[in-house]
Design a protein around this nucleic acid. Sequence first.
DNA 1: TGCGATATTGCACTATACGCAATATACTTC
DNA 2: GAAGTATATTGCGTATAGTGCAATATCGCA
Lengths: 265, 265
Amino acid sequence: MAKKAAQVPFIQSLDRGLTILQAVAMSKHPVNLGELAELLDVDRSSAFRLAQTLRRRGFLSTPAGRKDYILGSAIWTLSRQYDWSKMLVRVAHQELKDLAGGLNETAHLAVREGKNALFIDSVHARRVIAVAGQTGELVPLHATAHGKALLADFDDEELKDTFGSSLQKFTKTTITSFPALLKECQSIRQRGYATDEAEYMEGMRCIAAPIRLHDGSIVGSIGISAPATRFLKEHYAAHSKRVVQCAKKIGERLSITEETSDEEE
Amino acid sequence: MAKKAAQVPFIQSLDRGLTILQAVAMSKHPVNLGELAELLDVDRSSAFRLAQTLRRRGFLSTPAGRKDYILGSAIWTLSRQYDWSKMLVRVAHQELKDLAGGLNETAHLAVREGKNALFIDSVHARRVIAVAGQTGELVPLHATAHGKALLADFDDEELKDTFGSSLQKFTKTTITSFPALLKECQSIRQRGYATDEAEYMEGMRCIAAPIRLHDGSIVGSIGISAPATRFLKEHYAAHSKRVVQCAKKIGERLSITEETSDEEE
DNA sequence: TGCGATATTGCACTATACGCAATATACTTC
DNA sequence: GAAGTATATTGCGTATAGTGCAATATCGCA
């Protein structure tokens, strides 16, 4: 019943190496030997040899001349190989299904892609009127719930960097001024979810919440959408709660490091 | 004199773990135990324990139900922490300096950022007339040498995904049709470098080459720009050669896994 | 120039990671 | 559905790989 812990033994030195990697990635500053040794509670020499191995493999690097460590290009190369949206889809798909099923509406998963939100997965409930926004579709960041959820942490400067001079208008409710968008971001952070009051497509309502890693960074968004005729204002309270919950659960799953999981389909 | 090899011993199991990570990242398909064991030339059981350690730490993951391995979310989380453009800057800065010094013009380093190219580093030669495009500036992908270098591998679909409906016109030479842009990409792949014939700013010429990792993927671009009055057509041959060479060298450095380096500043 | 902190190397000991062989599980094939 | 083959997983004794200690080298600062 209790957690039967590590039946398969950890490979100690590999485990330590990975710990170093994560510590270095996390740290805002280059990390020196002492800190690593302390972190692992091993002798400086051991930490040294571990770090050297990582460095020779390109997973760590030493800023010109210095002796302390930062992440190396190997990790970059690694992460580029992989289609990360698949990762998100994998982790989030069950939640998406539950959400769509529970509310009997269409649920979407999106990531940021430049100026747009990209839908990378969706689950449709059994409804007569299907909703727009298929997987693969790009929609503007500033005019959709998903988009705004992805923007939630942006400040004035970042917004301007992203959008350049102006915000395109799609419907009469589209937000077209930077101050208004900034304020909207603020309130999304506050509430934990974003809404779309027909700001992109007439007659469409949508709620979306940012998916955050444990460090707070936003990596995607999850939400539901439906025609305004069906998705009424009085649904907001209940629906948003569920959406936010979903986002939170996904975020936690992404951040999990030690998997206890033995999930069967 | 000869390469004095690894004086600091490799931590074997860490090294093996990293090899697994890279192999899995590289592979298009999930990787199973047998392949890992063969790759490392160790017993299945050893490979198993290494892989399990990676999995428990979230660096590997097993697709629902399956037994074989794909990359896990930990790497994603890792790579998100880090400002990768800094990595590129670090690796490329010396080359940039050499390039600017050698040709006595301004050299830039850029990465793709959505619809734009973002200048992340630049070195100015000692010239009276400074050139536009400071670090931090965003310029359109389809109308600049750097931008087009970054687009070189895009196909028709990817171009349309990126730009949406239309290509903004900046000068009379700006490419504004998708077929033309696609053709331009093709010729950039062929030649290895992109040019900008005052397509964004009047009177400006620019040459840029894509920086590719060993697997061919484009991660940035490097190039030089100058007023057309100074940067003449007859310079193209010589300059482009140098720029392409630079890009190649940077790409190699980024892909390097085993560092022999002992560079002193 | 010397002192304190840090990084690096050599060496001896033992815990660790290894291969082997046994077992369990998944997947064909008849 | 049984037998067979490929794969994953566990247990265990042993050799080696990784450790800490201590010596040395390098750096930074006064």
